[in-house]
Structure formats: C-alpha cells, structure tokens
Design a binder for these strands. Structure first.
Lengths: 240, 240
DNA sequence: CGCACCTTTGAGCTCGGTCAAGGGGCGTGG
DNA sequence: CCACGCCCCTTGACCGAGCTCAAAGGTGCG
C-alpha cells in the first residue's frame, strides 16, 4: 500500500540494504508492498526505551540517535544511524520492550513493519532470517569491541575512534577536509565515549591547536585524518 | 554418529536449550545425530581469536571463558559460560574469524557442528533461525547494558553486578552463603569489569570486612546477597 | 536584542591505576 | 611428609587522568 508512494530511486536503494540482500525480487516487492511510512521531525522519537517492541524500522532519510537511559537519568548514546539502516530489530527476537530510545537528530522518515508481518516473511524465507541474523551478529561484535575499548583505552583514543566511525558513516568532503555532516554536540560525543562534555571539549581544543581538526558549534571538520588514526591506533610518537 | 554416545539425560538436557527450543522432536534428533564431540582439558582452548570461524559449539560440561585480546596484549573477559550455552555462534553469520578466544576454565566437553551443516538445518527450519536470532539479540542487549554500565558506573558497582551475574549462573548453596562455583581469580574479575586486579582485591577485602562475603584463593562466598544488590543497584545508605 | 543553548577554560580534587614489597595456599618432587 | 616454588592475593604509597564545579564567552534563532 505504501509502495506507490516510494520513488523508484528509493526502491532501488532499499533492495541493496543488508536486510533485503540476496532476496528474490518478487519477495522484496511484497515486503515493500506492505511497508508503512512514518515521518518524525527533529528532536522527536520513533519510539522510547520501554515502549512495547512491536515494529521494525528502516530509516529512509534523516539521522537517528539510539540512546539508553540509566536508572538515574544519565544518557548513553549507543549508535547514530543514517539512511538504509535497520533499527528496532530487537522486536524480531520477541523482545518485549525496546531497550533504547530512537530519537531523531534531523527530520527523518522511516519505513516500518509490524513484527508479526515481518515474522511471517521470515518464516517463509530462510535467506531473510539469515540476513537478520547477520545484522544482529554484526551488532554483537560492534558492542563487544566497544566494550573492550571502554575497558582498556584512554578517553583521547576512544574519542578519536568515535569520530572516525562517525566520519566513515556520514563524512562529507569540503575544501578544508572532511566535515562531520551531522549536528552533534560535545555532550553527544561524551555520551558515546563514556566521558564528560568538559573532557571532550578540552581534547577537541587540543586537537584544533595541533591543526588536526576545526570545530565549532555542533560542527567538526577533520583536516588531517591520518593524525586521528595515529591517535586511534597506537602508532608512533604519541605513546605515553 | 555421535548420538549413541550421548546419555539419555544429556539428550534430555539438550532438547531444552535455547537453540533447539520448540523444534519438532525428529528435527532435534537429526541435528544431534550429526553433532560431533570434543573434550578440552582445563587451560586449553576450543578456538582462538582469529581462527577461521567454521564451527558452532554447545557446551555439555565444564566452564569456558570467552576472551578478547587487545592489540597490545591486554585481555578482556567478555563472558564465562556453563553447560548448555551456545558459543562460537558468530560463525553462523558468515563471520570469517572468531572475534574471541574460548578457553576452558575446567575440563570441558562440547558438541559442535560445522557451520555448513547447521546452516542446512536453518534453511529448512525457520524456527531454528528464530532461535538463533533470539540468542543473538540477547547478546546484543547484554553488551549494550554492560557498555552502559562501564560508561556510567563506578568500579565497586560494576564488580557487584559482575559477581551477582556469575552467582546467578553458577552459584551453589553452602552453609555460609552462596558459593561462586568457579575458579576465578582477581585478575579475571578485573578483566570482566574493566579495572585492575589491585582494585578488585581492595574492594573484596572491604566487603569481607563488612561481612558481605568471604573470599579466598580463587573462591568467593556471598554471605549477604542483599548487601551486594544494594551496591549494584543504588538503593540506600551507600550513595555518595 | 535577548534568550537559550552550546562551548571553553580554570582550579581543585578524587577515584582508581601503577609500582613495590611481602604473605599465603597448594601442588610437586625429593 | 616436608619443603620448595609457583601462583594468587594483600596492602601501602604515590600520582595522574579525568571528573566536578564554577564562571564566562559564543552563536544562532525568535
């Protein structure tokens, strides 16, 4: 029903996403055919932590932050996702409630399916199940790695990693270097790396004075990516 | 082929594990029928981080530690698993290499299947695929939660959580309280909670002097679980 | 132009990491 | 059965990365 509202280029993009990879065209068509759409304006949420997990989403456009709230109200920013990413996938695994909040950082649009519908397709297509499995497995690995980072590495390195990760997702070439094309605050970066906004600010200032980056209000330009990589890995000079 | 070597009680146990949950009896039988067995003595490994991920394991008896090594040789202890747990499941998702080392903490036995074989079953049984998906989703959630803990909580609380988690997996009632039935060193606990063995030792000493636990060489007895829960959550008194 | 929010910077302090030294359980071999 | 040696554990002293709190400067929007 929503299909006719999707432009051909969007459909083209969707057939490439990990969830639908290697599926027969007619199956993709029927899955897209029952997708529904939802637009959410900047600052609102697709769902909140604790909501019943009954829908699975694919982002079409915009930017979504996945947060977890601690019991005492602190936030942790788990992922920032862009177009074509799957989110809310926990619902597929009979998760009762969403364990995170999916808040938009820009005006965003997503496709979604009720779990039961998508489950029906999975029951008929092992390939679809495998795709979902692979996406989940990727997330397990990512969080294992980030857990290890957080357990063993200093703030400066974690921050370098986080910024490089974001850049690879959402970097945009500009004359001065690579622009992090995403409204992100020091606070956000602190929540991603397990530190405080003060420490992030200090480190960014230091990098700026070294000519590695240029930063401003909710804006970061990486001028010398290799320098950040040096910090992220533990290459030369800058060891202890 | 290995089936005849499995005792009925073991088979009984296996039909209950998450991976095989809700499968028809004949499917379970054929899956178990092609399982192979491997025994590994204490201190050795089922596989190492970086090995090609070509087998999926279910632990039958013993205790296995899943480690990740940092580039500079530090270890992080991701999970400690007991009988009936699945490990190496990353192989199912076309992961090329194991991202962790699976080392035994006691003499252990596991069943295993080559990925291709298990994949064949998954292609025929959506329920099996769903089970795998649910296990993966559980891991995603666990690591998200532990990531948040590590990012926001102090060592003492993380340690309390880790010990409670281990207790629930492997606790054993003894006159003095609940024994952590598992040879675990201060170093292991440090690697699980992202701290150092010195800090773990200090905290355990402190808890011992408060009568919460009794500890010795590779041994911990929780005398007053509620006290640990108080520390793990952030209930009364012991706030800042 | 004023307000809300983001950012910077300084000063002080503390949690927990580092290093060093020594004590104690347990297996092994004499 | 004892003693040696290997691990594991404990404790003290020191110190430093990064957190906290406070204050003030920018930036963009209504």
């Amino acid at each position: 029903m929503a299909l006719q509202k999707l432009s051909p280029t969007v459909i083209e993009g969707l057939t490439q996403i990990p969830l639908l990879k290697d599926l027969p065209a007619d199956l993709i068509a029927s899955i897209l055919n029952v997708a529904q759409r939802r637009a959410v304006e900047e600052g609102s949420a697709f769902f909140f932590q604790g909501d019943p997990a009954e829908k699975v989403y694919v982002l079409l456009e915009g930017r979504v932050k996945l947060f977890q709230l601690t019991p005492d109200g602190q936030q942790v920013l788990l992922r920032v996702i862009g177009p074509w990413s799957l989110f809310g996938a926990i619902a597929l695994a009979h998760g009762e409630f969403y364990p995170v909040t999916a808040q938009t950082a820009q005006n965003s649009t997503a496709l979604y399916w009720p779990v039961s519908v998508l489950m029906g397709f999975i029951n008929k297509s092992p390939q679809l199940a495998m795709n979902a499995l692979q996406i989940m497995a990727g997330h397990v690995q990512e969080f294992q790695d980030r857990f290890r980072e957080l357990a063993t590495e200093r703030v400066e390195r974690r921050l370098a990693r986080a910024i490089l990760r974001l850049t690879s997702q959402t970097g945009k070439k500009v004359p001065e270097g690579i622009l992090l094309n995403l409204p992100i605050t020091r606070q956000d970066l602190a929540e991603m790396t397990g530190t405080t906004l003060y420490t992030v600010s200090r480190i960014l200032s230091q990098w700026e004075s070294q000519g590695l980056i240029q930063s401003g209000r909710e804006k970061i330009i990486i001028c010398f990516p290799h320098g950040l990589v040096n910090i992220a890995e533990d290459l030369p000079a800058r060891q202890t």
